[in-house]
Design a protein around this nucleic acid. Structure first.
Lengths: 139, 139
DNA sequence: ATAGCTGCAAATGCTTTGCAAGGCC
DNA sequence: GGCCTTGCAAAGCATTTGCAGCTAT
């Protein structure tokens, strides 16, 4: 009965951050709210700055970068780089693939098993395969 | 008998540039020489600046960028962006794939038919598939 | 209390642009 | 000669860093 929705998700994010040994500060909770509530997202730091600004949350761009990098380091986010030399952060950290529309710089997720990769070549010399990324560029 | 090697490749590059309506200036010929003589390469503007400098060729970094962008526009090069937000230029403009070693930022070509992509999902709404890039990240 | 965060501003690194001077046709 | 190209310096972005002040535990 005391389980009110607004507090519930906030509490969930508090727990989430604690799990990764990140203090649940106001700024981190605000970003977690924007990133991990709705469906999966692909966002840049600048986009998040606008979103926090529109919600009346005061947060410097440096803190947004620092926070996104921390989230990435602990595995809450995944980094993607495209043509325009802007870093995008993917809230879907599962192994999966992407459509990319160069006109809008938008990414669309493709589930991992929607693409079957056969006959992958062996990794060279002393290396192992860490991940395979497929990017289907649209026109 | 008059067909001396040094002049021959230079002439070839002169012709190449003319084909693409680019004037064969000293700087463009120097870059064409570095890029299109040996095996396929993946280079950044900064790498080429060092190489021209070491060869005693005087060339500003801005001109290197401008030239690489022109070469890319006409299809002599292909642009690749990786984690470090540095633009690399690939002298292999055929449809092919890459190993990527994040430690050294080095790329290794994979021939197109060394990877078989089955069951590619359809492109969304009004889009077509322009290209499929596979990046095998090494560790 | 203290270790960790944040904000600001400045610095950094890559890339592009404006403009005067030089080179190709 | 005229237009294209170059060089330099400055500007432009995205991102990181240093440090003083603030906050969570």
């Amino acid at each position: 009965m005391l389980d009110q929705k607004p507090n519930k998700t906030e509490d969930q994010h508090t727990d989430l951050l604690r799990q990764f040994h990140l203090r649940p500060t106001r700024q981190r909770l605000a970003l977690a709210d924007l990133l991990f509530n709705g469906p999966c997202r692909h966002v840049s730091a600048e986009q998040l700055r606008l979103e926090t600004k529109n919600k009346g949350i005061n947060m410097s761009l440096a803190t947004i970068y620092n926070t996104l990098n921390q989230f990435t380091k602990v595995g809450l986010l995944h980094e993607i780089n495209l043509d325009n030399n802007v870093t995008y952060f993917d809230t879907n950290t599962d192994h999966h693939h992407h459509f990319f529309d160069p006109k809008t710089n938008k990414l669309i997720d493709i589930p991992r098993d929607a693409i079957s990769l056969n006959a992958l070549p062996d990794a060279p010399d002393g290396h192992d395969v860490e991940r395979v990324d497929v990017i289907i560029r649209l026109s």
